[in-house]
Amino acid sequence: MSARPVIGIIGNSYLINDEYPAHAAGLMNSAAVAEVSCCTPLIVPSDPSLVQINDLLATCDGFLFTGGRPNVHPEEYGEEETEAHGTFDRGRDRVALPLIRACVDRGQPILGVCRGFQEVNVAMGGSLYPEIRDLPGRMNHRMPPDGTLEEKFALRHTVTFSADGPFTALMGAQEVMTNTLHGQGIKTAGSRVVIDGTASDGTPEAIYIKDAPGFALSVQWHPEYRAADDPVSKPLFEALGNAARAWKTDARPNLQLKSA
């Protein structure tokens, strides 16, 4: 029996007990990859002194760019750092951004989630708003500060996709309900970044890369939460798994418009 495809999960830097440095990724990300994508999850340290892009490309069959509390540094899109931009993880910036560009060029499958969604846009030359809720007419997209995990990840707003885009084809629906746990969002779309889904306030929530030779979708919400049960989340991780299997076997069909 052949080994399952490997999905690299981009980790984040943390201090355990405020003193012990660690790299980690949420359990729900690994579970979504293992149980829904049916691939082997592999957490990637977000430190360019520890990993090399070519090694990652050779080791993994696809990548999941996860959420994370630190934001992409505004220097990466030509803006000055302000207090509104929050905290940063420069190591992750220096791993994720070139890795995204390499995957897009090669057709190697990627799925961006929350910060990963923003990373894909920045990697392709786009920019970000530091705080969506401060913009006129926008709702607060941040995680509720109180409540249980279930309450924080609850479905909170609709996302509407273009009628003929890959997300409608993948979901089998043009409008879906999603959770929302982000403060930043797309300001200007990067080169070849197509905004295919928006919240009711106009905030971009789903993108793909135009003419990408492989699977290259990203969402602003968190589909990893209960991915095996949620009808919006499950197709995304199934499609990522299908794309990784195709990459592993060198078939590499265009899977952007196909669900499992």
Rank of each mutant, 00 (worst) to 15 (best):
N12E: 13
A228K: 04
L97S: 09
A24C: 08
T203D: 00
Y208H: 15
T188W: 00
H85S: 03
R156S: 15
V194R: 08
D61F: 03
P21M: 07
L217P: 02
P204Y: 04
V33F: 08
S191D: 12
R106V: 09
V176K: 11
A154S: 15
G202H: 03
D89Q: 09
I43G: 01
N12Q: 15
V104E: 07
V95K: 02
D230H: 15
F153K: 02
R69M: 10
G86E: 01
K187H: 11
T66L: 05
M124Y: 00
V122E: 00
C39N: 08
D250F: 04
V33Y: 05
P98S: 06
S200I: 06
Q108S: 04
P231H: 09
S46V: 09
D89F: 10
G202S: 04
P45M: 08
E119Y: 02
L217A: 05
F237P: 08
V104M: 10
V95E: 04
A169F: 07
V36G: 04
P136N: 10
D61H: 14
R226N: 15
Y129C: 04
T249N: 13
E83N: 10
D164H: 15
C114S: 00
C39G: 06
T168D: 01
C39I: 13
I16T: 14
F167H: 03
D93C: 05
E80A: 15
S191V: 01
S127N: 05
L170D: 07
K258G: 03
T188V: 08
L128Q: 00
K234L: 12
F237D: 09
L64F: 08
V6I: 15
G11A: 15
P5I: 10
A212N: 06
N29C: 14
P253V: 11
P144H: 05
Q184M: 05
A102F: 05
T203V: 15
Q52R: 12
R4M: 12
I186R: 00
L217Q: 13
M28N: 13
G91S: 12
V194W: 00
R245H: 14
